[in-house]
Design a protein around this nucleic acid. Sequence first.
DNA 1: ACCCCCATGAGAACCTTTTTTCATCTGGGC
DNA 2: GCCCAGATGAAAAAAGGTTCTCATGGGGGT
Lengths: 120, 120
Amino acid sequence: MERSTKQRRAIREAFLEAGRPLSPQEVLSLARRKVPSLGLATVYRTLKGLVEEGFLTAVALPGEPPRYEPAGQGHHHHFLCRRCGRVYELSGCGLKADLPPGFQAEGHEVTVYGRCPECA
Amino acid sequence: MERSTKQRRAIREAFLEAGRPLSPQEVLSLARRKVPSLGLATVYRTLKGLVEEGFLTAVALPGEPPRYEPAGQGHHHHFLCRRCGRVYELSGCGLKADLPPGFQAEGHEVTVYGRCPECA
DNA sequence: ACCCCCATGAGAACCTTTTTTCATCTGGGC
DNA sequence: GCCCAGATGAAAAAAGGTTCTCATGGGGGT
């Protein structure tokens, strides 16, 4: 993953233009607008490379395939639209964890479910 | 899923004795202590039946296979031990969601990661 | 502009989880 | 105790998602 190819550029731009976490399939659909011949294998290879070089991070959601989002955005959570399946980023964190004795917290994830503005 | 078989009883008891959400594999291991011949297919069939009859509910966690827990426990969240992979239930909910305009929340899930008392 | 090596695309292969198949077993009504 | 529909176990198959294979294409250094 070193050369600057049109595929790789299209994938990078897909994230910048979408402004929300994307699944590999979503990346494929969006990037194909610019590179119609794009293959799924290239998407996976490129996502892996972009994570390794620190441009993206993986986002795991309950019962969902992974999404990817630009790295370095600080602590935040996610919103999953139950109708269209799109994921959005929520700023901030209103969580106040209260653990039983003996448990040590190292991190947490919050997923809010509902309808996004387009599906409401 | 109507008869009371020793397999079904063993699976039900596994949940009552474990006191925490279990994955299908964990159910298999625990219930085999009482019914060593138990097969994985029976675990899946029985879990499905127990969910339908309202004894269990499925618990989805980010990047993890589903767990199952006794139903009707009210709103709560989960703790996933990063070392042993066991899931525990956390009582209460310290979340204060703050959504952007246009988003409608219907529910949420919180997963706390860390070390359980046995692995700390 | 040339050329080498990395990147790509298509499909096969893979991995993990879950479901199905089917012959055999068994709970429970009679 | 008999009997049969429902339950079981083992193995195969299915379902999703991800990675690999390999012949071809195309960056980018020279």
